[in-house]
Measured scan of single mutants.
Amino acid sequence: TTFVALYDYESRTETDLSFKKGERLQIVNNTEGDWWLAHSLSTGQTGYIPSNYVAPS
């Protein structure tokens, strides 16, 4: 499932994924509650993102 970032997010830990508003993200795993494992289609990096910062594209 592809989502789009609603806001900028700066990672707080090394497992988080930083992203910019408008960036497209492929969700890898969304069974972890409020933090989803995502892959950035812009940077190619993978990490955890706050689910309330993204919406379906």
Rank of each mutant, 00 (worst) to 15 (best):
T31F: 14
S51C: 13
D34C: 13
T43V: 00
T43R: 11
T13F: 06
S18H: 12
K20T: 09
G47D: 00
E14K: 07
F3I: 01
T1R: 09
V4I: 09
S42T: 05
K20H: 07
A5M: 07
D34H: 03
G33P: 14
E32C: 15
S40N: 12
K21E: 09
Y53T: 08
T46I: 08
S18M: 01
F3W: 08
E32L: 07
Q26T: 14
S18L: 00
G47E: 01
S51W: 14
G44F: 14
Y53G: 10
D16N: 04
T15H: 11
V28D: 03
T15M: 04
K21I: 04
S51V: 14
S42R: 12
G22R: 02
K20G: 03
W35I: 11
T43C: 03
Y7C: 09
W35R: 14
Y48R: 14
S11R: 13
P56M: 08
S11P: 10
F3M: 14
T15L: 05
S51M: 11
L17K: 01
D16E: 14
V4Q: 07
K21T: 07
Q45N: 07
Q26N: 10
T13Q: 11
A38Q: 04
E23N: 02
L37S: 04
N30P: 15
S18F: 02
S40T: 02
T13S: 09
N29M: 14
L6A: 08
H39D: 06
T13R: 14
R24P: 15
D34K: 06
G22H: 05
N29A: 13
N29T: 15
T43W: 00
K20R: 11
A5Y: 00
Y7E: 08
F3P: 01
S11G: 12
E14R: 09
Y48W: 13
V4C: 05
S40E: 01
L25W: 02
S18Q: 05
N52D: 05
E32D: 09
Y7I: 15
S42M: 15
D34P: 12
I27G: 05
V28G: 09
I27E: 01
L41T: 11
N52G: 12
S11L: 01
Q26S: 13
A38M: 04
K21R: 12
K21P: 01
N29P: 12
Y9V: 03
Y53F: 07
G33A: 08
L37A: 03
L41F: 05
T46R: 14
P56T: 06
D34V: 12
I27R: 11
E23I: 00
T43K: 02
H39V: 11
G33F: 06
S18R: 08
L41H: 15
S51E: 15
P56K: 05
N29D: 15
L6I: 02
Y7Q: 15
E10P: 02
T31E: 11
A55S: 15
F3D: 06
H39Y: 10
R12H: 15
W35A: 07
T13G: 11
T46M: 11
P50G: 04
R12L: 07
F19V: 03
E10T: 10
D8C: 02
Q45C: 10
